[in-house]
Measured scan of single mutants.
Amino acid sequence: SDPSEDRAPESARVGNIPSSTSALKVPQLKVAESAQGPAAAHTTDTAGYNAMEESVSREKPELTASTERVNKRMSMVVSGLTPEEFMLVYKFARKHHITLTNLITEETTHVVMKTDAEFVCERTLKYFLGIAGGKWVVSYFWVTQSIKERKMLNEHDFEVRGDVVNGRNHQGPKRARESQDRKIFRGLEICCYGPFTNMPTDQLEWMVQLCGASVVKELSSFTLGTGVHPIVVVQPDAWTEDNGFHAIGQMCEAPVVTREWVLDSVALYQCQELDTYLIPQIPHSHY
């Protein structure tokens, strides 16, 4: 159930021909089969995070001529859309010479989310990475209204306002976009420790780096000194050995919190207090 199309920051360009055919990675995205229709094609874990990302398996898109002007500035990904909605975005992107990729990268400028009429969405990996990267996180209605009015409308009017977990109007995407000089995790050293489900560890690490944190791979690698705040992030329900995560405190002095601390902080683009996310640790033995 991992969102495989989000696994690594590679891009698939639509609308320009790469210098070599080997560089072309066409979105071959799968549809989750469901008797209840597209709305039930998501699996949500206890964290309220949509693990099964969206989309559609299609034939290789038709490439435009390399001489045609390509908008190098805009690059989009989509999240939560049905196959039909994805194809509408594809046509919109081609019309406006926008790069459409299946994986979010540093070059991505827009994340197009499936939302309700009030621009509230589910939480997906692309949603988190879009906010963390200060990108435009907009409703699919931006595409449909632009098509209806036959011009590209202003993104401000379609920015995602909230999500089904953290609140319907928290304005996290807007706050992140306007606060890239004040990253929420700066001054923190974060170790993403142990197993994680539904989200590859490297993507979680990239997320906290985008928010200004330094990533530490091992508990023994924390910088011990003033001005640096170490934090260990774990996902308790992913551990097979009972309560192993309670013993992390015996290996390092850092506070240990659940992954929800990261996800909530990123969604709201406000660093949350650790208290409600802390995992009790077995104290050091004193002999």
Score class of each variant (00 low, 15 high):
residue 1 S to A: 06
residue 2 D to L: 08
residue 2 D to W: 02
residue 3 P to A: 08
residue 3 P to L: 15
residue 4 S to I: 08
residue 4 S to D: 10
residue 4 S to R: 11
residue 4 S to Q: 05
residue 8 A to R: 07
residue 8 A to M: 10
residue 10 E to N: 07
residue 13 R to G: 10
residue 14 V to C: 14
residue 14 V to P: 07
residue 15 G to N: 10
residue 15 G to V: 08
residue 15 G to T: 12
residue 17 I to P: 12
residue 17 I to L: 07
residue 19 S to E: 07
residue 19 S to T: 07
residue 20 S to I: 06
residue 21 T to P: 15
residue 21 T to V: 08
residue 22 S to G: 11
residue 22 S to V: 07
residue 24 L to C: 07
residue 25 K to Y: 11
residue 25 K to R: 14
residue 26 V to A: 03
residue 27 P to C: 09
residue 27 P to L: 06
residue 28 Q to A: 02
residue 32 A to L: 13
residue 33 E to K: 09
residue 34 S to I: 11
residue 34 S to G: 06
residue 34 S to N: 06
residue 42 H to S: 04
residue 43 T to R: 03
residue 45 D to C: 13
residue 47 A to S: 12
residue 48 G to Y: 03
residue 49 Y to Q: 11
residue 52 M to L: 11
residue 54 E to I: 03
residue 59 E to F: 10
residue 59 E to Y: 04
residue 61 P to T: 12
residue 64 T to V: 15
residue 67 T to G: 04
residue 68 E to A: 14
residue 70 V to S: 06
residue 74 M to G: 06
residue 77 V to A: 15
residue 77 V to H: 02
residue 78 V to T: 08
residue 78 V to S: 05
residue 80 G to K: 04
residue 81 L to F: 07
residue 81 L to I: 07
residue 83 P to R: 05
residue 86 F to P: 02
residue 87 M to V: 13
residue 88 L to E: 08
residue 93 A to C: 11
residue 94 R to L: 14
residue 94 R to Y: 15
residue 98 I to V: 08
residue 98 I to N: 10
residue 99 T to A: 10
residue 99 T to L: 13
residue 100 L to C: 12
residue 101 T to Y: 05
residue 103 L to I: 04
residue 103 L to N: 05
residue 105 T to E: 14
residue 106 E to A: 06
residue 108 T to G: 00
residue 108 T to P: 01
residue 108 T to K: 00
residue 109 T to Q: 00
residue 110 H to Q: 00
residue 110 H to S: 00
residue 110 H to L: 02
residue 111 V to F: 01
residue 113 M to N: 00
residue 114 K to I: 05
residue 116 D to K: 02
residue 117 A to R: 07
residue 118 E to A: 09
residue 119 F to M: 15
residue 119 F to Q: 13
residue 120 V to M: 06
residue 120 V to Y: 02
residue 123 R to S: 01
residue 130 G to A: 12
residue 131 I to S: 01
residue 132 A to I: 01
residue 132 A to Y: 00
residue 135 K to E: 01
residue 136 W to N: 15
residue 137 V to W: 00
residue 137 V to H: 01
residue 143 V to A: 07
residue 152 M to G: 01
residue 152 M to C: 04
residue 157 D to L: 09
residue 160 V to I: 04
residue 163 D to S: 01
residue 165 V to R: 03
residue 165 V to N: 03
residue 166 N to Q: 01
residue 166 N to K: 09
residue 166 N to Y: 02
residue 167 G to C: 02
residue 167 G to Q: 01
residue 168 R to G: 07
residue 169 N to L: 05
residue 170 H to L: 03
residue 171 Q to H: 07
residue 175 R to T: 08
residue 175 R to A: 08
residue 177 R to A: 01
residue 179 S to A: 07
residue 182 R to C: 11
residue 183 K to I: 10
residue 183 K to D: 06
residue 183 K to R: 06
residue 183 K to M: 05
residue 184 I to L: 14
residue 185 F to N: 00
residue 185 F to R: 00
residue 186 R to P: 15
residue 187 G to K: 14
residue 189 E to V: 08
residue 191 C to R: 02
residue 193 Y to P: 09
residue 199 M to E: 03
residue 200 P to R: 08
residue 203 Q to L: 13
residue 206 W to K: 02
residue 206 W to A: 09
residue 209 Q to R: 01
residue 216 V to G: 14
residue 218 E to L: 11
residue 223 T to I: 06
residue 225 G to S: 13
residue 226 T to R: 13
residue 229 H to A: 14
residue 229 H to M: 14
residue 229 H to V: 04
residue 230 P to K: 14
residue 231 I to M: 08
residue 231 I to K: 01
residue 238 A to L: 15
residue 239 W to R: 10
residue 239 W to P: 08
residue 243 N to E: 11
residue 243 N to W: 12
residue 246 H to P: 12
residue 247 A to K: 03
residue 248 I to M: 09
residue 250 Q to S: 14
residue 251 M to E: 12
residue 252 C to L: 07
residue 253 E to K: 05
residue 254 A to S: 10
residue 256 V to S: 14
residue 257 V to R: 01
residue 258 T to G: 10
residue 259 R to K: 05
residue 260 E to A: 13
residue 261 W to R: 01
residue 261 W to K: 01
residue 262 V to W: 00
residue 263 L to T: 05
residue 265 S to T: 04
residue 265 S to P: 02
residue 269 Y to R: 11
residue 270 Q to M: 15
residue 270 Q to P: 01
residue 272 Q to R: 13
residue 273 E to T: 08
residue 275 D to P: 12
residue 279 I to P: 07
residue 280 P to T: 14
residue 281 Q to H: 06
residue 281 Q to V: 07
residue 282 I to E: 11
residue 282 I to V: 06
residue 282 I to A: 13
residue 287 Y to S: 11
residue 287 Y to P: 13
